[in-house]
Nucleic acid binder design. Structure first.
Lengths: 205, 205
DNA sequence: CTTGCGACTGACCGGTTGGTCGGTAGAATG
DNA sequence: CATTCTACCGACCAACCGGTCAGTCGCAAG
């Protein structure tokens, strides 16, 4: 239980009981597999081996469970990647680190990541997602800054920064749609290969 | 109604009444906005201004409506792109055409595309999706062949073909997660820029 | 005029959903 | 012993889900 719960990225400041961590962990797995709508509170309770009522003792409603997973996954992604950017290194090396760190995060917190992105769609009620979007913007701000710096430093061509950002993020974010954990290449190696291809280009010189 | 229905890609052989086209069109819009589970048959009937029963007069069940949209979108994507590959042109030019044609298809059939990709997740019942996957594989086979040919022709470096395919498809497939139709750049221009960046690389030479 | 047929409707069905409520067991506190 | 608090459960609810069904309407063929 504790091992599974460890796969849920949580801020160090927030203390949660084993039970709460178990609920979050099982919910992430179910949300990832079946989506938000496709996962019922009964499913979650059954997976945890507890009654449905107990879920409402620890959480206000279904949305709070999901929001906690999604917010945690997004916030910690920022911190995780930010901490792994080598200080003082040239921008291109930091871009590479940004990409491989994201791949690393993806394989560590696979269920939480999948859960938070699988149900990105149907969230018209943006109030609860506001803080999550803030961290997402900070995360995207990292790569935007790095690419701008790389252009200033003359390491990469003066391309459209916004589009280059989208290209990098697309390659990383689309991985969860096709990558299976038992593949020969892990997400870090894939992210590294992506960087090489994007940076050097496919063209034969 | 007919104009909206025209946004639904259907094979030329299938003849459908206006009513059926209207149902497909409205359903695509709703599925795109709220996902499969988030769209009820009542929602669809209300959007069409008809009774819920009438939906079952024209379609066997909810799944058939979705399957028809998703299968049509996937099958026609293959044909659309395949027809737009310039014969006899060098592989790199054909890769570029593959990408811009996909962007073009995306902006033409936005709702159907969004509907079919938004609910990619929760489809464990693969029987009905089998034909759809066949067309998806053919579509992906196009770009795989083109990249292999480009390597043989010496136009691009001998990179990992599977990964290069994923990189190209990621950039195109992730577009629907961030692109809004009112943006200054349209999907064709974006796809063209992606090709340029991927082909030539970001590195300053 | 009658028959048949496709388009169409409203009332209804069993099942599932997210969520509520009254209550219990047990450990800690006084 | 009495009180309080937290973790926990089973029974229950209104609302909504996908889907069914008997029947209505207008129109075209005999």
């Amino acid at each position: 239980m504790a091992r599974a719960a460890a796969r849920i990225p949580l801020g160090k400041e927030t203390e949660s009981s084993d039970r709460v961590l178990q609920i979050l962990s099982e919910s992430a797995r179910l949300f990832a597999a079946s989506g938000y709508d496709g996962t019922s509170m009964r499913d979650i309770a059954l997976a945890c081996g507890i009654s449905k009522s107990l879920l409402y003792h620890h959480f206000a409603d279904k949305d709070e469970i999901f929001a906690r997973i999604a917010l945690g996954a997004t916030r910690e992604l920022y911190h995780f990647v930010h901490e792994r950017l080598p200080e003082g290194a040239p921008p291109s090396a930091r871009i590479r680190a940004f990409m491989t760190a994201t791949g690393d995060y993806f394989q560590r917190y696979r269920w939480a990541w999948l859960a938070s992105t699988a149900s990105f769609w149907n969230d018209p009620e943006a109030r609860r997602q506001k803080e999550r979007m803030m961290w997402r913007d900070r995360y995207e701000g990292l790569i935007r800054t790095l690419i701008s710096e790389a252009i200033e430093a003359g390491e990469i061509r003066p391309v459209d920064v916004a589009l280059a950002v989208r290209l990098v993020l697309s390659s990383l974010n689309w991985m969860h749609r096709w990558h299976k954990p038992d593949k020969s290449m892990n997400p870090v190696q894939i992210a590294d290969s992506y960087f090489e291809m994007i940076f050097n280009g496919l063209k034969q010189n």
